[in-house]
């Protein structure tokens, strides 16, 4: 019985991580890619670690697994936030079908500070570059 549970958890975790990989390939822009990976990966790793803990069934392993999951939950969102923010004012364009962009014109370019009020001025316009680093020859 326990073996089956462990196997199912491992399988589910592996599937989630695989889907995160597929997501990276299929998603159209940076922010969507991060949505696909940062989180699916977290749950996937969590499930695999839980399966490992159940398999060994020792106090030391449980303690370590809980600590690892705790730190993943704590650090993964911060990495996602920093990457997303950096991508935004580096001018990485949002996908063309993006419905809404409330961040537009809210970053001050000089010091990267983010203001919440209405501040429509040239100073706040992050230039969006159309060419990305992966295309070999920009047109």
């Amino acid at each position: 019985m326990q073996e089956i549970v462990i196997m199912l958890l491992m399988l589910l975790g592996a599937i989630l991580i695989f889907l995160a990989g597929v997501g990276i390939l299929r998603m159209p822009d940076v922010f969507l890619r991060m949505s696909a990976t940062a989180k699916a990966g977290t749950l996937g790793v969590g499930l695999i670690l839980t399966a490992a803990a159940l398999h060994f069934n020792e106090f030391g392993i449980y303690a370590r697994v809980i600590a690892i999951i705790f730190f993943i939950l704590l650090t993964a969102p911060i990495a996602a936030h920093i990457i997303g923010r950096a991508a935004y004012f580096d001018g990485v364009p949002l996908w063309e079908d993006t419905v809404q962009d409330d961040l537009k014109k809210h970053y001050r370019i000089s010091d990267h500070a983010l203001y919440s009020g209405e501040l429509p001025s040239e100073e706040f316009l992050v230039p969006q570059k159309e060419a990305d680093d992966f295309s070999e020859e920009p047109e």
Partner: peptide, 11 residues
């Protein structure tokens, strides 16, 4: 951020 589909970009 941990909920898939949503990502907090900045404050």
């Amino acid at each position: 951020t941990l909920t898939p589909g949503t990502l907090s970009l900045d404050i």
